[in-house]
């Protein structure tokens, strides 16, 4: 973990309530896809945890959804703004487990960290396929960016207004070497039910956080191995360690 001041380079809206900010600063603590950063905002006590969508060459790309007052303020920040970030938080995905044909599954704002993951997997010689699930066409983002990587992209929406109609669990391709998933809890739970028992997978979990670096125990979940902090022991957990009540 590192604390660093970043400069906002540009910011744009990608879909309904979904924004991307690109920043420049010291990204040296971000070493694995699936990690996150915590942004301090003037006037707000707690930092905002945001997953890393991409990073490299001193630049950081973050995609977030406006869900409350803090993210609303974030979306109004202009180029040149300085932001204090804690970077390199969380464990990230295990690249070594991917095999040659991994499947990536993202739902809503769970999609962004899979972009950095896809880039790293390609670099390591794997051929990933990605399934992107959204509620409706107005919320779809980043499908073109994934296509531009030259990988197979399957888009689905719950209402059928873009891509295939259905949930990610309705459109899963068969025959992957490993599954990486990030999305809302109901999606991950449904995935766990749908994937074959033998399918090896890592799920990136989400919880409301206090500190983001393992001190406050605000985001603990119970796993088969006992209590774990989503921010510090996760957010990525092996599928077989998770409990679904």
């Amino acid at each position: 973990m590192k604390e660093a001041v970043f400069t906002l380079l540009r910011q744009a809206r990608l879909a309904r309530d979904v924004w991307r900010m690109e920043l420049s600063g010291d990204v040296s603590a971000i070493t694995v896809p699936g990690q996150f950063v915590e942004i301090a905002l003037d006037g707000f006590f707690l930092r905002r945890p945001i997953s890393v969508c991409d990073c490299g060459n001193g630049e950081l790309s973050l995609i977030y959804k406006v869900v409350g007052q803090g993210t609303q303020v974030m979306s109004c920040l202009e180029s040149g703004a300085s932001l204090n970030l804690l970077t390199g938080l969380g464990n990230g995905f295990s690249l070594a487990k991917s095999g040659c044909s991994p499947l990536l599954i993202g739902g809503g704002v769970g999609v962004p960290p899979l972009y950095f993951l896809a880039r790293c997997l390609l670099k390591a010689g794997a051929v990933p396929t990605i399934v992107l699930g959204f509620n409706t066409a107005a919320e779809v983002f980043f499908s073109e960016e994934f296509r531009a990587l030259g990988i197979r992209v399957i888009v689905c929406t719950a209402d059928g207004t873009a891509g295939q109609r259905g949930l990610v669990t309705d459109v899963l391709p068969v025959g992957s070497s490993f599954v990486y998933a990030c999305g809302p809890l109901p999606m991950l739970r449904a995935l766990d039910r749908t994937l074959p028992c033998s399918a090896m997978a890592e799920f990136s979990m989400e919880e409301r956080m206090g500190c983001g670096f393992g001190a406050c125990m605000g985001c603990s979940i119970m796993t088969k191995g006992g209590a774990r902090r989503v921010c510090k022991d996760g957010p990525v957990f092996p599928r077989e360690s998770l409990l679904w009540e």
Partner: peptide, 8 residues
């Protein structure tokens, strides 16, 4: 969880 809320 949720165990955390924010306030001014």
């Amino acid at each position: 969880t949720p165990r955390i809320a924010e306030t001014p």
